[in-house]
Nucleic acid binder design. Sequence first.
DNA 1: CATGAATGAGTCTTCATTCAT
DNA 2: GATGAATGAAGACTCATTCAT
Lengths: 193, 193, 193, 193
Amino acid sequence: MSGTGGTQERPLRADAARNRARLLEVATEVFTTRGVDAPTEDIARAAGVGVGTLFRHFPTKEALLEAVMVRRLESIAAGTARLAAAGEPADAFFDAFRLVVDRSAGKDAFTRALAAAGRNPHAALRETSAAIRAHLGELLAGAQDAGAVRPDLDLPELIALLVGANSALEQLGADPAARERILTVVLDGLRPR
Amino acid sequence: MSGTGGTQERPLRADAARNRARLLEVATEVFTTRGVDAPTEDIARAAGVGVGTLFRHFPTKEALLEAVMVRRLESIAAGTARLAAAGEPADAFFDAFRLVVDRSAGKDAFTRALAAAGRNPHAALRETSAAIRAHLGELLAGAQDAGAVRPDLDLPELIALLVGANSALEQLGADPAARERILTVVLDGLRPR
Amino acid sequence: MSGTGGTQERPLRADAARNRARLLEVATEVFTTRGVDAPTEDIARAAGVGVGTLFRHFPTKEALLEAVMVRRLESIAAGTARLAAAGEPADAFFDAFRLVVDRSAGKDAFTRALAAAGRNPHAALRETSAAIRAHLGELLAGAQDAGAVRPDLDLPELIALLVGANSALEQLGADPAARERILTVVLDGLRPR
Amino acid sequence: MSGTGGTQERPLRADAARNRARLLEVATEVFTTRGVDAPTEDIARAAGVGVGTLFRHFPTKEALLEAVMVRRLESIAAGTARLAAAGEPADAFFDAFRLVVDRSAGKDAFTRALAAAGRNPHAALRETSAAIRAHLGELLAGAQDAGAVRPDLDLPELIALLVGANSALEQLGADPAARERILTVVLDGLRPR
DNA sequence: CATGAATGAGTCTTCATTCAT
DNA sequence: GATGAATGAAGACTCATTCAT
């Protein structure tokens, strides 16, 4: 897991690595704020490189979008991995829910990627989201065993709720108190009656 | 209230009305399943007419999208109006939540329209969604007065939750039991602790 | 030469004749003020008829344009015929020059039609402009015989100068004194040194 | 003043510059002979490039047309500047008239641009044609002072006459003797009686 | 390796003309 | 005869992707 994950990459030259990182950064920003229809050229320009460079690093626009998602998902996976290994099942579960939602912030094309896991043909995405799903599965089971979450809920519903919570928050805007109220509703709803 | 609604339209010839209706039908289907980036030509073809006909009825693609949304929103508004006038505040509120979610199904550009009410510049959309918001506001207040919904929740959060529920369900797929479980979580979460 | 000239037309019903006249009127106005690229539908609407009616009277847009031109040319031809029959060769010639320019006013697509005489494949136009050319030829010869116009000038140049004068005036705008100065320049230039 | 003129352009690559120049060349030819309604694609094809290339160099068709005009006007401006600086007022004036007419040849959208100076919104055009107008103004005044041109003529009329002469010549065709006779008429007409 | 110019298929939209009502 | 709805071939412009410099 030395690099960005995937199929055997020879080590990039320093400047190439820098370009790649910068492109990923900028693409995340652009896709998030302007949507995935933003022209590749805008991304390249914002990253200070030519389109050619962009396409050298990412063979298609879709591959770039995928890489952006993978990065986000990896960050999430790191968090859920830690929490799945934690001791307190109930707290860990609820923390994980918040963590996923927090790190998915922005144009929700991203959370969707997580959900598209099974259907999606891209290996990198599939692997990372499978890991997250596994962690969430464990956390859910733990919380249910601890009686902290409704026992009839299954992983697909949990994920759908994560996507939904993300949408709701994206919809709502910045007011922190209101955001907290939204989360309270969903998290309370997850608890057994 | 019987027809396509909006600002005074001279009565169309029978065949023209049929084409218009068919275009609206097909566009709803296409936008819903394939997203708003689907080519106008596909919509025209699916409706069995030439592009020219589409553009005669709807001067721009955006106008078509707007008409589709207005139709959906009007259907929702009719439902919420009825429920807002009903006697049982608590039931009416929860029924309204389900109704909005049901009739918003699809690539969720739709619930967003409702949410975008104040900001967006399309008069037809603005009016209809303002009406829905008004109904939802009444229903929420009634349910809160009746002690059936958390008192700290405000209309913007309710709407955000509707958008979120829609996303969650869209994400989930068809399984009716799972869909019901999702809704149960959210609706239970809305109740006071 | 009872009607609009051309190949055998059965007498139109009163309303049809009225429509045809109105279309010609409106088309002249529209082509003149908005150019020949104005949509046929605008012309039909301005004339208070449907496009279908327009195309019943004039099988193509070009035919309509031609009819408009023929009308103008006929008006010019009537004037030049009268002047060609007049007694005073010099005055008649200069009057004709002014007359052609006056009646050609407007988007000069019209004067061009006159010039396109020989090349142009449309019978109606060809005939009428041939007549005008004949009159102008006579007038020119008369004025040259009378020593009022440079002897080296030929009909094609005269026509080119008419087109040019028309362009110049169209370019200039409304100021009557300035228009007169332009005409003075050209008419003086036509005189022998 | 050496190149394509306008607001600071970074130096293009050799091939790009060649394409740009070729497009300008071809567009001049096409607009001149077939009018401004000729499809952009025809221009691109004639220049041996794809449409994309055309639109890379000129963001809209109008921008291309403007560039073509600017080039023509600059060529004219260079000539009138030289003549305005010359010693012999009368000759300089008449030479300038011929020069403008010569270099404006074609579907006369061009001389119009000169005339449209004040009104039109394109900065590049405005500046260049303002320069030409200034030169012509000086030349006219000089020639009038020298008694070589009618004293009652003003700049707007001169410009209208340039447009008119251009139209007349465009109308006339290639015969050099006839063209010369036309110019003689107009130039003689400009002289005082 | 990086650059950005070139490509051309694809998208929206217009408009002359036809034809069912 | 009149109407205006329907048609579809263009036309301007965009953008992912390729490739010469």
